[in-house]
Design a binder for these strands. Structure first.
Lengths: 456, 456
DNA sequence: GGGTATTTGTCCGTATGTATG
DNA sequence: TCATACATACGGACAAATACC
């Protein structure tokens, strides 16, 4: 520590030990040093401020005599309670802690994952492995992301999602947002508006807005963005998340994907394809990424692993188009890599050793079973009173509840019964079941039933 | 063992710890103590020679700093390889894996760190510790950054730099850039131009440009941004990096800092204080951060650990002003945390356990010794032909070379001789010595001499 | 192989002698 | 002569690593 708050001026005429005494005294009086806070040791402070021990000691001693400090031999100096009750030192309300969701037994929020079905052990081992590799910690990383990981990702994303991209096209970052932000910088000389679906995706909109790119929310039909609205808007940049349209819970069918690609080809538009959870579709045949359908032209692909592997892994990647790569290259050195180097190597190992594939297979199966079990449980509980929307989006079910109550009211009722659910577009209810352990599903459905039916 | 080679004379006038230091140093240089030989423990030697622990310790410590010994906590002191074998050393080229700069033997570039003086072991252990903590891996993190780390940072930045901020004012991110980017989003509704010094800082400029904030490069005098230019510019946002003005190598004196704060107060301006390497000043007494001088008003403080701790650690933090915090809060949930959760916990532990403090102290000492040694070596080599600008910026020296050659020419000549140096403002030469091992400094200075003097 | 005693580096407050004005 | 500041040295307390049962 340098104790920067202790300001000394060698030429002020005031003796050093007295300047020290005064600044510490005011720190105690103002409450910056609270009772039993430990002060830097005499030698330490002397070293840091380039003073001699004696100087510091005489300041401390005077403070002791006057009741600001207490000296404990061989242990240190400690502050005493000498706060001068100034005008108002507020009780320091530390409101920055996340409020614990009180009494939520079953959380159907869409931001949960099943913490029981994560291969923590393997992942820990991988991180440890990366940690021990020569020069992972001590050396600088590559700005664009480690080559090793970019190579692994190029292969993986082709196999899993049909993305065609060379390792040079791939940029790594700490999640989707920093990558979007970088992308905005590359693209803003060309395009200043972006089109996206009306019930949008807040976290992406926020980045666009922050980068000064106007967000155009266009209406959409059941298949996604309405093409006529898109054409009329004049936008030459569109953001879509085909695999996980958060609010509606439905995907974008192939027909609309092709229409979008056609739009890009004809107008010179660029599509940002945020393939959030694209790997997790378990019901139907996998729909390949738009990026690949088009051979990598006109589409920037965004993928991430936060919800797939572990919530704490903050690694995302994007595949740039050849044109954007040209723009990126000369300024690549201006962007520091944001993703942890250790995590990058660990992830590369995880992918290359085939563990990722195994994990995905298991997850898909698990979520398939969960979805089925939840569907059955709801049918049993409610019968025809709730319609369950069969859809392809992973990890969520959409319910239409036949009742007079509003969706918001249903949410409140459920929460009162310890079940957290969310609303979806069109007065529907959204259940994200990823975070509910398989064994709890039946009980969770029962709780929902009692919440919604035992009301006057 | 009687350690007969350690001859002490209590009445010689030479301090005991220095006699000890000298005898051990010559034992290492002469090869009597070979690499990894273990030295007697402090207490044993103190006992055998009838000295106090402190006396022995200060001798050992100086030897550590100068690269003769290595201390392994709780295990002992060990000799390093520092045999002075005349001119025939160079067997092991200093391993900068950073770039295969062909034939650069001594790299005085400012982007190097001393890879020999990083506490890899402790850091590995901290990461492992975080890795094993319950729910670090499996659960989501806080958007703003882990509370534990924010609390640690609030205390640390107050102690180390005089920053006054509560944990809720602190936002964590994967380095300075994502934080700047977020900050631009908070601020762009108000201000669309930012003023910064003319030889600017590319990585910050890039972010401003990407976010659509116009960069206004203003002229500056020896103390930094010229206040008249700033006032005339009409900008209400200024970016400064007082502790490390990269190109000039000089800091911003207190007088100018106060002027800047006055400007902020009078015009409602906001100052972004990027305190890059602020902790590392070793020469003078610490200059506290502007943020703290002003009680946290009108100044956003940015700090980071990449160059301080480990190049691979990508964690930065910023302290928002109360007004900006108000703007941030409602949209905090829209920003995902970019910094690795494991690294956050590891860093929090590192700070709270006092290891950060110890590390900083060691670094400061090391760089102080390096700076001194380099200064002496240059004076010996060039005499009055070069003026050495004594300045307070960490890790660099600025030279005025009295010659007809231009600064650029001097750089080229040096490079031809295997020494990389950089130009500074005003036709001066900048030497960033952080990456030069202590033992190589004399030779590096000699190389510079032969490069600059043996020319027709 | 797991607890315990010891050793180790580290850090602490303190004391003394001395050099300035 | 006295206050101030510095360099040097002392011996004790502590936690972590290690060695020993």
């Amino acid at each position: 520590m340098t104790y920067a708050y202790l300001q000394l001026d060698k030429n002020s005429g005031v003796p050093l030990y007295r300047q020290l005494y005064l600044s510490i005294r005011s720190a105690v009086e103002s409450g910056h040093l609270r009772k039993n806070d430990r002060l830097p040791s005499i030698r330490r402070l002397a070293g840091d401020l380039s003073l001699s021990c004696t100087t510091v000691e005489s300041a401390y001693q005077q403070l002791c005599v006057e009741g600001y400090l207490r000296s404990v031999p061989q242990r240190g100096y400690f502050a005493l309670d000498a706060k001068r009750e100034g005008p108002a030192r507020k009780a320091a309300p530390p409101a920055y802690r996340h409020r614990p969701l009180s009494a939520v037994r079953y959380n159907f929020g869409s931001d949960c994952v099943d913490s029981e079905n994560i291969d923590l052990k393997i992942w820990r081992r991988n991180i440890r492995g990366a940690l021990n590799r020569q020069d992972v910690l001590a050396a600088y990383g590559e700005h664009q992301g480690e080559t090793e990981l970019r190579e692994a990702l190029a292969a993986y994303s082709y196999g899993a999602r049909g993305v065609v991209a060379s390792p040079e096209q791939i940029v790594i970052g700490a999640g989707t947002q920093p990558l979007l932000s970088l992308l905005c910088g590359l693209i803003r000389s060309d395009r200043r508006t972006v089109a996206l679906e009306e019930p949008g995706f807040t976290q992406a909109e926020q980045i666009f807005a922050d980068c000064g790119i106007t967000v155009l929310k266009l209406p959409c039909d059941g298949d996604g963005l309405r093409m006529d609205a898109l054409a009329r808007s004049g936008a030459r940049l569109a953001y879509v998340s085909p695999s996980n349209r958060v609010r509606t819970g439905t995907g974008i069918p192939m027909s609309r994907r092709l229409e979008l690609l056609k739009w890009a080809g004809e107008t010179g538009g660029v599509i940002i394809e945020d393939d959030y959870n694209g790997e997790l579709r378990y019901r139907a045949r996998p729909v390949p990424a738009m990026q690949g359908i088009n051979g990598g032209k006109g589409v920037v692909y965004l993928g991430s692993f936060s919800k797939l592997l572990l919530p704490s892994i903050r690694i995302g990647y994007m595949a740039l188009t050849p044109e954007l790569l040209e723009r990126y290259r000369p300024r690549a050195a201006n962007y520091n890599q944001t993703a942890s180097k250790v995590a990058q190597f660990a992830l590369a190992d995880y992918i290359k050793s085939g563990q990722m594939e195994r994990h995905l297979r298991r997850l898909r199966k698990l979520y398939g079973v969960k979805s089925e079990k939840l569907t059955r449980a709801l049918r049993r509980a409610f019968g025809p009173k709730v319609e369950i929307l069969l859809q392809e989006t992973p990890l969520t079910l959409i319910l239409t509840v036949h009742t007079e109550k509003s969706a918001g009211e249903l949410c409140r009722l459920a929460l009162k019964n310890g079940v957290r659910v969310q609303t979806a577009a069109g007065g529907k209810i959204r259940l994200g079941f990823a975070g509910i352990p398989l064994a709890d599903i039946d009980d969770a459905a029962a709780c929902l039933k009692s919440a919604w039916e035992n009301e006057p």
